[in-house]
Simulated scan of single mutants.
Amino acid sequence: MQKAMISFVISALLGFGVGYLVFGVLMGDSGNKSQVAQTDTPLEKTTKEESKDSTEPATSSAVAEDNILNKRGCLGCHSVEALNLKGGAVGPDLSQAYVNVEGKHGKPIEEFLKQPTSAVMSGVIGKNPLTDEERKQVLDLLKQASEAK
């Protein structure tokens, strides 16, 4: 009995050690990184704005930290690379969601945001539905992202 207990303890320590090595050291310690939207630094914004033609509309409002996707926690799982909104990697990139949702989920994005057909999003939005104004803001941002690429 004592031999089995010693074997168990050694195996457990080895298992935790290998897990730490693989997930903590080799894959980077992603547990310490926040999943908040990362936006351009003021220097990058200035450089980009100076290089734009004056007739182009500025997109700084879309990448502001107070955008709807950040406020509602969408960036905890999703990114929107087209707008340089970095977030979680669990959910898909939303850069083309405005045009792709209907083909993937069988209903237009406006309806999907009201009543999602995916199990994960049904749970997320079902527990905390978007208001009409929030839904409009999300649609505007996702439309802008789909046009950016």
Score class of each variant (00 low, 15 high):
Lys3Ala: 13
Gly76Phe: 05
Ile125Val: 14
Ser122Asp: 12
Val18Gly: 08
Gln137Thr: 05
Tyr20Ile: 01
Phe16Ile: 13
Lys143Asp: 15
Ser54Cys: 02
Cys77His: 07
Ser61Ala: 08
Glu50Lys: 02
Leu14Ser: 11
Gln144Ala: 05
Pro57Thr: 08
Gly24Val: 08
Gly91Ser: 09
Gly88Tyr: 05
Phe112Ala: 02
Asp132Ile: 01
His78Phe: 09
Gly28Ile: 02
Tyr98Lys: 00
Phe16Arg: 01
Ser34Thr: 05
Ala62Leu: 11
Leu141Arg: 00
Asp66Gly: 02
Gly123Lys: 00
Leu26His: 04
Gln35Ala: 01
Val9Gln: 05
Asp66Cys: 01
Ala4Glu: 11
Thr46Pro: 05
Pro42Thr: 01
Ala58Tyr: 06
Lys143Leu: 13
Lys107Gln: 15
Asp93Trp: 03
Gly31Cys: 03
His78Thr: 09
Thr117Cys: 01
Leu83Trp: 06
Ala58Asp: 15
Met27Trp: 06
Gly76Leu: 06
Arg72Trp: 11
Ala62Gln: 13
Ala12Phe: 14
Lys52His: 11
Thr41Ser: 14
Gly17Cys: 02
Leu85Val: 07
Gly88His: 03
Thr47Asp: 07
Lys3Thr: 14
Gln137Glu: 15
Lys48His: 09
Gly123Ile: 07
Glu110Asp: 14
Gly106Glu: 13
Ser60Asp: 15
Ser95Gly: 10
Lys143Gln: 15
Tyr98Ala: 05
Lys3Ser: 14
Cys74Thr: 06
Ala58Leu: 10
Phe23Val: 11
Asp132Glu: 13
Val25Asn: 03
Val36Leu: 08
Lys136Phe: 10
Gly15Tyr: 14
Ser54Val: 12
Asn128Tyr: 08
Tyr20Pro: 10
Thr117Phe: 03
Lys48Leu: 14
Ser118Asp: 15
Gln144Cys: 06
Leu43Ala: 10
Val22Ser: 02
Met121Thr: 13
Pro108Ile: 03
Arg135Trp: 08
Cys74Glu: 13
Ser146Asn: 10
